[in-house]
Amino acid sequence: MAKTILEVENLKKYYIQPGGIFTPFKGAKRIIPAVDDVSFYIKENETMGLVGETGCGKTTIGRTLLKLTPVTAGRIIFDEKDITQLTPHEFLPFRRQVQMIFQDLDAALNPKMRIRSILKEALTVHHRLSDAEINREIGELLEKVNLKKSKLSNFPGELSGGEKRRVGIARALAVGARFLVADEPTSALDVSIQAQVVNLLKDLQKNLGLSYLFISHDLRIVELISHKVAVMYLGQIVEMGMAGRIAHEPRHPYTSILWSSLVEKKSRETTKVSTDSKKGTWGVFDFERPHTGCRFAPRCPVYEAKGKPSICNEPSKAPQLQDIGDAHKVRCHFPL
């Protein structure tokens, strides 16, 4: 039985938007619940996929795990320790274990440093190494991520997208990370390179026993690489379960719509929910003022089909994540 490496309990992250200089006249500041009451756990050597539309709070979760942004409430337990309470200094040992692959290809790489010094810095940040050891370690890293040795003397600007991504991964591995937050690692890459990176991530997981939180909006890749998948909508997890079940037997209407919207599948897939574009107010949702009760109700085809039942609108009866067997959880009053 694999050990639980990361557990997130009731994580909340609210952004407070000051109302500008007219705040006193307009009343309260606006509170944007980017992440609202999210709980999940990841076991060792496991990948959890996190999917959702732009602005649903996936990236914010990744950033809170690395303490790049403070949390409003909730606990993040990594290796049986709550990291939200640690001071930056106490958190340092955890920096070795949790790393992030940033969405932006250039993100991790200082444009004015050569690749060798970027890797060297990552190697020496937590350990003191001699030059010979550094050279050996760099050689090993390059082998792990399948990068040519001649690239070491280049600047990041001279590398192609795939190579930059590999350097980013190598850098995370150099610290000795066991848990990687991969924030859209393939979105900026070409199709042929994307496959290389996905294969690399799978290889590393097999050989080094890494765990991933794989944040992506590419549903196919998420389904391919993840063991379990959580679907987010407006800061909340609406469905969570094993990857295959989420993709093929979705119980939440939103998940169903998400997967049926894959362009490839569109022509042949028969989904349980009709996704007529004329119905509902697709693509128009107000993040600042989520619908009371179930947040998905304004876009929900089931809500529409059932004649707008009042339970979906009731603020006091907002649906909770309920277990429906086999570690499959759904936040819906009328699961499909």
Partner: peptide
């Protein structure tokens, strides 16, 4: 805006190193 300062923080570098070196 280019996130590499954030990435350096995530790596565990001290503020001092980030400011002076990076």
């Amino acid at each position: 805006q280019k996130y590499f300062i954030e990435a350096a923080t995530a790596l565990g570098l001290k503020n001092r190193v980030i400011i002076f070196k990076h």
